[in-house]
Design a protein around this nucleic acid. Structure first.
Lengths: 183, 183
DNA sequence: GTCTATAGCTGGATAGAC
DNA sequence: GTCTATCCAGCTATAGAC
């Protein structure tokens, strides 16, 4: 059996372009993701962007799908963690992840092809998120009526950039799972 | 005393440009806010954008300040409402308002001048928001520890676009204030 | 697969007439 | 204040050589 890994880490030109696009998008926003700049960062010619993705929208959609698949995998891993809420918190709290999400939402606001792609994914993601959190909270013996799970998803997911709230949320987590264990 | 109103509704060219920019930003995203398109919507020449605002960044900052001032005024009005939570909810839940906020945050991600402007404002806004909600909740005799006010601000403010949660939140509001009264 | 070259367009910004 | 005219930069996308 060859030591070949999955496609994700292949050092192909296609992946190099996607990596460059991802970095640009988080650092400077989607408006900075142009064929020339992406190609420059990836160290290839700009015509290759169109060779692999046809259009810039094609590149954005491929980029979104790659990130969405990874997020989904990461979400599933949370369930098997000994401190699932901490893991979940760190997942949604991740800076580059939320920056990425925000850029794609802004992008979707004025690109129809991307809008459809994102709507479908986020619907599935939020459903799974809620299932997962409900399971976890029930495991802690919490019977909080019907809105806490949704509320917690909302609180954790959306506005974690507001630093004042971080301490508050982490205090709640510590009450349930004890202080964050070193990894 | 002349019937002259405040500056806000003046049918000046400057205001027409700001109005056109605001509409474009909400409908098609900040990337659609170009000097030519703004001028076209406002029915004036594109050179006037630079005459009044020097640069496109200048236009964005003026636009943000106008919106921020209005939001602040509207937030204060909530306090004197007979159903402050409902009013607050409708305020943050307002579609064009949250679309506007998202666009500016995305814009701030890659425009330094705008970033500074927004950071300052949103700090002040969130503080006032929390003061207000704490007061209101205390008025309902709720003693919810230290995180509910923050949590409610977060839930209501950020993710109100997730339509699944709207019903849940509105149920909570109805329990406190009764069903929404007709205006 | 990867490159060069280029067509065709749109945008920010300015100069200067009225 | 408002307009016309224009410069220059940067972008998407394609054709075609290697």
């Amino acid at each position: 059996m060859p030591a070949r890994r999955g496609k994700a880490d292949d050092p192909t030109t296609k992946n190099a372009i996607l990596d460059a696009a991802a970095a640009l998008m988080v650092d400077e926003g989607y408006a900075a993701v142009t064929s020339r700049r992406v190609a420059g960062e990836a160290g290839v010619n700009s015509a290759l962007v169109y060779y692999y993705f046809d259009t810039m929208d094609g590149l954005f959609i491929a980029l979104f799908r790659r990130g969405a698949d990874r997020s989904f995998d990461r979400l599933e891993e949370v369930l098997s963690s000994p401190q699932p809420l901490w893991d979940f918190w760190e997942f949604v709290h991740d800076r580059s992840n939320s920056a990425r999400t925000m850029e794609f939402m802004a992008l979707a606001n004025h690109r129809k092809a991307i809008q459809a792609e994102i709507a479908e994914y986020s619907r599935k993601f939020r459903i799974r998120e809620l299932e997962l959190l409900s399971t976890v909270l029930a495991g802690y013996g919490l019977d909080l009526g019907q809105w806490p799970a949704a509320s917690i998803v909302l609180s954790l997911s959306g506005i974690s950039r507001f630093s004042e709230t971080i301490a508050v949320i982490e205090r709640e987590l510590a009450a349930l799972e004890g202080p964050r264990a070193p990894r």
